[in-house]
Structure formats: structure tokens, C-alpha cells
Amino acid sequence: MDVRQLEYFLAVVDHGSFNRAATALYLSQPSLSQAVRALERDLGSDLFHRIGRRVVLTDAGTALIEPARTAVRGLELARASVESVHGLRSGRVQIAAMPSQAVAPLTGMIGRFHRAHPGVSVTVRAAFTARDVTEMVRTGVTELGLLASPDPIRDPEVCAHPLPEQRFVLLAPSDGPFAHGTTVLDRKDLAGYRLIVGQQGTGMRRYVDDLVAEGVEVTLAVEVEHRVAILPLVLAGVGLAVVTDAWRELARQAGVLVLDLEPRTSLRVTLVGRHGTTTPAAEAFLRTVLTDAADNAVEPLS
């Protein structure tokens, strides 16, 4: 067994098929399949059930994921630590981020980090819920994660670094039901309207579910996992959308009306990392973010 084989195994796990994994690794599929077969022979157990072009993890494959990620991360850390002796000129930071927070504040974070360390690349992995983010960090899929949640993060397996909160706002078409000049709306005044919502487990969905629980009668017009569809749906007049104010500038540029909702409700934004040693690139990213937060007098959340 070697680390290269473990990297190939994890690529199949992450991409869901040998074909997509081979493409991501710039390998031929036969070469990838041969390497994984060799790993299975070495371990004396099948790691995947091969069903046509699909693969499903066996129990042995599932058991291998976390130690494989630990081994691969260990090698990456060793290489990065040696390279950093001569300054942080290269490397990679992998971050799991929820969609809205990938718009802001993540883009600003990456911009500041890139100016300080232009030779380091950043990979952003999609995660739809706060639990997805912490799981990706905990299991080593990424070193860092950016999430938003109504409640503080109390997962003992990750380190949490609170950032400024994001309040909820309403997106509406400019030719919709609200007069120009309107900037604030009471949430109870959403009664009778059609809403575009996210899937269960997201902050924007929880906001609408709480609204319904309060007795405010709204119609769930669309449930969508693809956040990129929200603005076009609002512009098309399909419904209104409750999102975080990370979307404010993009929405305004697209010609969508943005209204603050009262009473004010916010999501806690948190950057999470792994306990223990991390790569110099991840440490530098975290240091850049926290230094910027301190310079802007960000108070830690309780």
C-alpha cells in the first residue's frame, strides 16, 4: 500500500465513479482501476461494489476513508512544511463552504489572502448545510470550512472561529408588490406571498419554516438546492426569496429589490478548522482572516 493508491481510492469516493475520478486525476480509467485493484489485493478486501458504471462503498471501503484521508493529509503536511521553510510561495488551501457564504464573506477572504500569498491556490468545495461543512472538515476532505447557522457551533471535533453575523433580507422583483423606496418589511407582511426556499437543513429554509410555525400563511413556490437559480427565479416573478445579506450587492446589480426584514434575525457565520497541526497554507489563510477580523474590531460571538 502507498499514499498514491490511497489518493486514487479517495478520488473515486469523492467523485462517485472511476471515470470521473480518472478525469480529475488526469489518468486513464484502466490505470486507475488497476491501482485500486492492487490496493484491494494488498488489503485482502473489496473496497467497492461495482454496479455497471456506478460504485458503492463496501464496509471495508467505508472503514478506510478516514485513515486514508489522515495518511494523505499527513504527506501533504510534510511536503508543505518543508516548502514553507523558504517562505509560503506555493501550496493549496481547501475550504468547504455553504453557497451563500461562498458569495460573502469568502470571496473577500480569498481576495485578501491572494494579495498576501499569490502563489498559493484555493480550492472551494460545495457543502449545502452547516453539518456538511463540519463533516468535511472533521473527516479531512478539507482543512477549513465556512458555514452559517442560527446556533453556535458546538462540535468538539472542530475549532470554531466566529465571524460577523449575516442578517436575513428579502429579495423581490423591482416591478413586484413593494413600492420603490421601501427598505424594510415586517416578516408578518409576507403572508399571502409565494416564496422560493432552500432545502431542509439550511438557514433560509429554517427562517421560512419558523414563519409558517408562527401562523404566517405563505406558499412554498419552489424548493431549490441550486442557489444560483434564486436570482433568476425572483427576476422571473416566480416568487420572493429570503436569503442572507451576502446576496445584497449581487441582487442589486441584477435589478432585484432588497428589503431588510424585521424583527432582525441573523445567522452566525463561522470559520472552522481541524484540531492539531494544519498545513502552512491553511494556517496562513486562517491568520489572514482572523487578523482582518481583529483589525475591523469583530467581537467574538458567545
Rank of each mutant, 00 (worst) to 15 (best):
D189H: 14
A251D: 02
S266H: 14
F9C: 04
G201D: 09
M136Q: 14
V56F: 06
V133P: 08
I65G: 03
P99W: 09
D186K: 01
E40W: 07
R92I: 02
I95C: 12
V224D: 01
R252C: 02
D260H: 11
E249M: 01
N296Q: 13
G108A: 14
E7P: 12
G74Q: 13
S17K: 05
V234N: 10
R79V: 15
V36L: 12
L290T: 07
A22K: 08
L171R: 00
T129P: 06
W247E: 14
N296P: 00
V222E: 03
T23Y: 03
A148P: 00
L43R: 11
S84L: 01
A191L: 10
R37H: 14
A97C: 08
T278A: 15
D186N: 06
A63Y: 00
A221F: 01
L261C: 13
H114K: 14
L75P: 02
R187G: 04
I110V: 13
V56D: 04
G44S: 12
T278Q: 15
V120N: 03
L171T: 07
R268K: 11
F18G: 02
V72P: 14
T202V: 09
I95E: 10
G74V: 02
L257G: 01
Q199L: 12
G273R: 03
S45Y: 02
G201R: 05
R274Q: 15
E249D: 15
Y193V: 09
R89S: 05
F113H: 05
D189T: 11
A104V: 07
F168W: 07
G111V: 12
T202P: 07
F168D: 04
S302G: 08
T183E: 12
H117I: 09
P162L: 08
F178K: 13
N19R: 10
G61A: 12
L220H: 04
Q5H: 09
V238S: 09
T139W: 13
E217N: 12
T23C: 00
D2A: 04
E225F: 06
E283H: 07
A97M: 07
N296T: 08
V55C: 06
V222K: 03
A104L: 08
P105S: 10
R248N: 00
V216H: 02
